[in-house]
Amino acid sequence: MTVGGDERRRLPGLEGPLWRALLVFRFAALGYAAVLMVNNFREYAWPVGGWLIIAVMTVWTAVSSLAYARPERRGWPLLVADLAVAAACLLASRWIVNPSGLGVGSPTLPMAWVAGPVVAWAISGGRRRGAIAAILLSVADVIVRNGFSQATANGPVLMILVGIGVGHIARLAIDSEARLQRAIELEAATRERDRLARGIHDSVLQVLALVQRRGTELGGEAAELGRLAGEQESVLRSLVAANSPVPATAPAVAVIDLRPLLNAYGSAAVTIAAPATPVLLPASVAAEVAAAVGAALDNVERHAGERARAWILLEELDDRVTVSVRDDGTGIPDGRLAEAERDGRLGVAQSIRGRIRDVGGSVTVTSTRGNGTEVELTVPR
């Protein structure tokens, strides 16, 4: 997979460090070329010309660095101009440096500075573009040295390796960033889909299930209505399982007491035990915990038996809050939860586990046939 121009423009945070690294390289290479000039200019055929080339390199380093700092300017005009200036400075060595020295591997005037355009081309277009720039400058190097030999091969070979290596790394990094972006978007969309599925399960699906059950009990026309409700429940469960992701919403940031939300579930069949002091959680977390408790109680009502009782225990620790929902019903047979999830019945998978997972918590379900069920919800503080 490759990343096109539009995707590259959406990832300035990744390309920025690469261009800044090129800036550092250009100034470091310019400094090295200046040091060599100071040490060797007395041996040059035209020393004044050497200082002129160093001045041109200095000016172009400043100009190109400022230009590359703006993403909208990193197009072909700047890339071609950069390559042309580097090639001109390299070719000028033919008349300034001692020609006999160049033929046996003496350094050219720009030295490593000419690799700057190669790196720029590689960052902007990958290994193929980097290799093209390296080959063009290698041709200029061969011209300066009057041919290609073992003594003069190091420069061209290194430039080609730099062009291919930097281009390959830049493309891999940008492609990886694009994949990561898409994965984050998919995760957010999946979480929102799960949230919607829980809402549907806690409202529409349960109503349809109730209509089906009561219609079957009443018989006659009500039985037909119950049958139709059952069919629609099955269809809706399938749609929930394959629901298309939608953009995630921003979480709430207010802090509220969890106790009143749980106290609302109290009844003759549900006993609640909670601390005497407020148990504070972010509003969004408290709402999800309370909804998960409601789903657990709904399972008790529907599956634990007509005379089953339930107990809610709220515990507060320094780093977490735990809510336990225990009943004295018939318990859950082995493998029943996995079977229900495969059938699209999302009470435990989504309304309980999904909710608590989305707020960074965990769920433990303990049940044995005939001894009731305990659902323990734990969320971090």
Rank of each mutant, 00 (worst) to 15 (best):
220 G>W: 09
205 L>A: 04
246 V>H: 09
220 G>R: 10
241 A>G: 12
237 R>I: 08
202 D>E: 12
200 I>N: 02
226 G>N: 06
245 P>T: 07
213 R>V: 04
226 G>S: 06
220 G>H: 06
215 G>V: 00
205 L>V: 12
203 S>F: 08
208 L>E: 01
238 S>C: 10
203 S>E: 12
214 R>C: 05
197 A>H: 02
251 P>V: 06
220 G>V: 02
226 G>Q: 02
239 L>S: 09
222 A>Q: 08
199 G>Q: 11
209 A>P: 01
212 Q>I: 04
217 E>D: 10
202 D>L: 05
243 N>V: 15
246 V>I: 15
205 L>P: 00
242 A>D: 12
199 G>A: 05
233 E>V: 02
202 D>S: 10
234 S>D: 12
218 L>Q: 15
197 A>P: 00
235 V>T: 14
221 E>G: 09
197 A>E: 00
236 L>M: 14
210 L>H: 09
242 A>L: 11
234 S>P: 00
227 R>P: 01
243 N>I: 15
237 R>N: 07
200 I>T: 10
216 T>L: 09
209 A>M: 07
233 E>T: 05
206 Q>E: 14
212 Q>E: 15
196 L>H: 10
237 R>W: 02
217 E>Y: 03
207 V>K: 08
243 N>E: 10
250 A>E: 15
231 E>H: 13
199 G>W: 08
200 I>C: 11
205 L>I: 12
251 P>G: 06
247 P>R: 08
213 R>T: 11
215 G>Q: 00
222 A>F: 13
230 G>L: 02
203 S>R: 09
216 T>G: 08
228 L>W: 03
214 R>G: 02
199 G>E: 02
224 E>F: 07
212 Q>A: 14
233 E>N: 14
242 A>M: 10
199 G>C: 03
208 L>V: 06
196 L>Q: 05
209 A>H: 07
245 P>I: 03
211 V>Y: 01
213 R>H: 09
203 S>W: 05
234 S>N: 11
210 L>G: 07
237 R>V: 04
225 L>N: 05
223 A>T: 02
226 G>A: 07
199 G>Y: 04
224 E>N: 07
210 L>N: 07
226 G>E: 06
230 G>C: 02
244 S>V: 15
230 G>Q: 02
205 L>R: 00
251 P>N: 06
197 A>W: 01
234 S>Y: 04
220 G>S: 07
196 L>D: 00
223 A>W: 01
236 L>C: 07
217 E>W: 03
